[in-house]
Design a protein around this nucleic acid. Structure first.
Lengths: 347, 347
DNA sequence: TTTAACTAGTTAAACGATTAACGAAGGGCA
DNA sequence: TGCCCTTCGTTAATCGTTTAACTAGTTAAA
């Protein structure tokens, strides 16, 4: 069962394959008579012709394909949404996305870029599992590339898209404050990541603005952000002399630990203690009891943005002129049941 | 900065491009002198030649590429491990894997298969998000295909790989029984899936073998398997007249709900009630307190197996002769702290 | 001295499209 | 009639490889 090719259609329609190519690529404007065009289309349909993209790609030097290079983004849980967003929009716009996971190994990365280049991919999305700043991957220097969930130490030449950590954490604080809380505890991490730094900065600025004295005694940081770290931090804060009325956790997993601490200490969520998470991690945030109020990381939207921007660049002939942009997307508040208005009686 | 091609290397080495091709494809056995071979290799290296796979693919009708078609497997959380397994092993064996997510839309699926075929992929992995049996996707009929996390209603023509649901659930029951439990409760689903059916069958057979009378009163099924369903089921069982000493949950998420029920009823896990999950869902099973004992679904291994098997078929010239196999992989017990030996005093 | 068999390459066709350049037929006009 | 335009297609080169078939020179055997 051989694949039908251009020349088969041509033979069936009694014309040359050039004519068929012209008709099928909508380039026949004033070059092919209507009757021939109709005949060609009919035969192509009848024979179920579909172009061999490998041959086309060789001839045109285009591939309508983009590559997504990631550390471990695809396999890792919820950040897979970035991949989904990028893949879907590429697909919708008639492009194919090939992703390869380099397991954060730079030698692998080099091989991956090479393998994709060998297949004539026209541009790249470089995705990071966690939000960070990085130096330029050398092999990508001359390639159209969008940085996803990471940004360059020296931008200007390429676009990137990241979550607006500071603005989003500020939104979370606003929400807590709007609910009447002032004695707000912070459970975070010292691990030097953009998220860790910016979210805690937003917390601090909000507390300063509220003029909460000695807010530092309401902060607890561990190195990592696992559930148990959240537990340890929450125990410290909830058993301390100055018990906060609300807890703002760096991550949903830490919030999960905070739930356990609250339960152990005999505090009800949210009646006795409000808890705010961050990430909206699937299968955790909504499965906790009570369901956790948190901030939705814009993984899907970032993926969408990256693919759209890259394809814009690639489809635009004068792509040099296109604007490079360092995009930030704000997280959405997802309000569930773990935050309640502050009430003095509950203290 | 044009890509270096075969003829550039040939010119630099002072030979024809056929010679370069012969040397570089290790086909020069007795056809090229050692000195020329050395010269060619040296120039290739110096010019950083890397073959254009599009051209090669056009010529050889091979692509060293396989396609993975999935419903929503990639984006969905932990089943991404299947993708990771397949991608990594393809990569290790020198193949590229292109995956496309069809969002369980059959029209999309058709387009996806076509798009991949147009790019000369040599074979397919068809992956399902949840374990099920399905009918043959028509477009794949004549393509080398492995079915991953699903099986055909009429196999024989193609291989497939799925978790050994019955055997694995039996293992879980053995573990509970070895810990002295006899009054074991079941929290499951009525939603007709292979997993739901087989795991509960394993439970029932184990209870029969134990000769536990009227075990049906220890079973509770809901339609879905969310945390809240597990909560509802566990409340029913734990507050009933016949309180089990251990709970076997269809999924980790249900187990999460069971934890909440136990806590609410004032039962400690595992001292007062042992809880066994299923899935080993990342960020849940190990983050629960106490960490959940559960069965590790072999997602990664299944992905590995599928890719290896497919590539075996493709690399084997006489692939017709290759054995079709309906493979089942057993889950591994991951023992954490939610199951304790039964002790009469705890009742 | 033929003929055969190696050795060490080269030539050229092919893979399946795209597209610049060409050409034949017909019409219009001076 | 001669010349120029259109109109409607065709020819043939090209993308970068692979590989069957060929060549030329040397050696060995009959």
């Amino acid at each position: 069962m051989k694949r039908v090719k251009l020349s088969d259609v041509a033979a069936a329609a009694g014309v040359s394959s050039a004519t068929v190519s012209l008709v099928l690529s909508e380039n026949s404007e004033g070059r092919v008579s209507e009757s021939v065009e109709k005949r060609v289309r009919a035969q192509a349909k009848k024979l179920k012709y579909s172009p061999n993209l490998v041959a086309r790609s060789l001839r045109t030097q285009k591939s309508k394909t983009i590559g997504l290079i990631s550390d471990t983004v695809a396999t890792t849980n919820f950040a897979g949404q970035m991949l989904a967003g990028a893949e879907e929009t590429a697909w919708k716009r008639g492009w194919l996305l090939i992703f390869v996971d380099t397991s954060a190994d730079s030698q692998n990365e080099e091989r991956a870029i090479k393998a994709l280049l060998q297949r004539n991919v026209e541009g790249f999305i470089y995705a990071s599992m966690f939000h960070r700043k990085l130096d330029y991957p050398l092999q990508l220097k001359n390639q159209p590339t969008i940085f996803l969930h990471c940004s360059l130490n020296s931008p200007a030449t390429h676009s990137s898209v990241v979550p607006a950590e500071y603005a989003s954490a500020s939104l979370a604080m606003d929400f807590l404050i709007k609910n009447g809380h002032r004695e707000i505890g912070w459970i975070g991490i010292t691990n030097p990541t953009v998220g860790g730094r910016e979210r805690s900065r937003a917390y601090i600025d909000a507390m300063k603005k509220l003029k909460v004295k000695d807010y530092k005694s309401l902060m607890f940081n561990t190195f990592e952000s696992y559930a148990n770290d959240g537990y340890v931090g929450a125990m410290k804060l909830l058993q301390g002399l100055r018990r906060p009325t609300a807890l703002f956790c760096f991550s949903d997993r830490m919030a999960m630990g905070a739930y356990r601490a609250a339960n152990e200490v005999g505090l009800r969520v949210p009646q006795d203690i409000s808890i705010m998470g961050f990430d909206n991690q699937p299968h955790i945030a909504e499965a906790l009891w009570p369901p956790l109020s948190t901030m939705q990381l814009p993984h899907y939207e970032m993926g969408t943005w990256a693919a759209n921007r890259l394809i814009d660049e690639l489809e635009n002939q004068d792509s040099e002129s296109i604007l490079r942009e360092q995009k930030e997307i704000t997280c959405k508040l997802v309000e569930r049941d773990s935050v309640a208005p502050y009430h003095p009686l509950n203290r």
